[in-house]
Amino acid sequence: MKILGLIIVVLVGAVLEYATIDFPPLGDPASPASTHVSPRYIEKSIEETAVPNVVTSVLADYRGFDTMFETTVIFSAGVACFLLLRVPPSRRPQRASERQYRHRLTGLTFRIKGGAEVSLPLHEFERVDSIWTPYDFIIEKVCRYLIPFIQLFGLYVIAHGHHSPGGGFQGGVILGASIILLSVSHNLRIALKRMGERTSALFSPVGVFIYAGTGALCLILGYNFLDYQALAALLPGGPIMARSHGIFIVEVGVGMAVMGTMVWIFKNLASLGRYDEGL
């Protein structure tokens, strides 16, 4: 198998490399890729959409239809992980077969096997995961203080996609990462208390619905799908500013969808569908 793999790989690599002889030189401003379609994007972006970040205006306006399907891809990946991994609560045993509790003051750990029912005074004991890492005070406290600022930064990245590198995807990933950090530094149950299963599962479709719904709204108002100048009837500022606002609305939708899906996929993968113990 390895020899066959090596032969295939060398052949394919040679074929691909053979074509690069006819490529235009690297960095050539007169190459077809740089002169055919892109100059209009760069030159007319501010004039037609009032957004200085050309990547955002191309992503969300000129080729906005692609981006809507991209958001759908990430949504369907979240649904797929849920469908494959989630063990429904009715089919799970009531309690995990082995649980561990740690006494806060002394640090002693008790292991309870066989799913037995034990009632422990919760203010003295806390539940610890089976993949137990030693309790680290610094990580827990530092992350607890950092997470709100991370989320604020994520919101900033979404909102400033017009003027600086950023946008819906990037900001959404940062927001999702903040919840994942909460889960990794504390434990999964605390992250579940902050953002429950239903919340993250509903953020995804609502986010994509904002995107597709804006497009459908433009359709209803009489223009083509995702033609934001239709929104000039609803928002102040004229057709060009309406494009800028439309781009912002869909970026918010994208951010919500990406955040919800990242958290949802993480919860399903890390806890193997049981939502009980995890990273």
Binding site: H36, V37, R40, Y41, D61, Y62, G64, F65, Y223, N224, F225, L226, D227, Y228, Q229
Partner: peptide, 8 residues
């Protein structure tokens, strides 16, 4: 889509 003529 978006009211933009192809190829843009």
């Amino acid at each position: 889509f978006g009211g933009w003529a192809p190829p843009w």
